[in-house]
């Protein structure tokens, strides 16, 4: 049982992930953008963050960078629905020590498996 922060601009995706993780025994808070996500991060101190990659206001890469500044050891996974054309965001994740990349749409077992594996590993 862990506290997990989910950041995805698509509200339906956020709700879906929350539902699956809650059923998996976790406590979930959701945000629809980077600013809200960081505020929730400060207020709730989650054990793990799942952030979408392509978001309108702040990209997932920027959000992760922001979170890393607050907590260099936080467990972070990134979600992606495949990127739009252009400079691939996914390539700039390298130095940000992202624990996993999860592709949407996923099987429930993939989501829970990824989350459990990250939680089992010591926070870095």
């Amino acid at each position: 049982m862990a506290r997990i922060l989910v950041i995805d601009d698509d509200e339906l995706v956020g709700r879906t992930i929350a539902r699956v993780l809650t059923r998996g025994g976790h406590e979930v808070v959701t945000a629809t953008g980077g600013a809200q996500g960081c505020a929730l991060f400060d207020a709730q101190r989650p054990d793990l963050v799942l952030s979408d990659l392509v978001m309108p206001e702040q990209s997932g890469v920027e959000v992760v960078r922001e979170l890393r500044r607050r907590d260099p050891d936080m467990r972070i996974a990134v979600l992606t629905g495949g990127e739009s054309f252009g400079v691939p965001l996914i390539d700039s994740l390298g130095p940000l020590k992202v624990g996993a990349i999860l592709r949407k749409p996923f099987e429930i077992a993939d989501l829970l498996g990824t989350v459990d594996a990250l939680l089992a590993a010591p926070a870095r």
Partner: peptide, 21 residues
């Protein structure tokens, strides 16, 4: 196609996961 694919991957996430649940 990449724009369409991105939208569909998001739209498919609730369909797939919540149906699975």
């Amino acid at each position: 196609t990449s724009g369409v694919a991105h939208e569909f991957n998001n739209a498919l996430t609730p369909i797939l996961s919540l149906t699975e649940l």
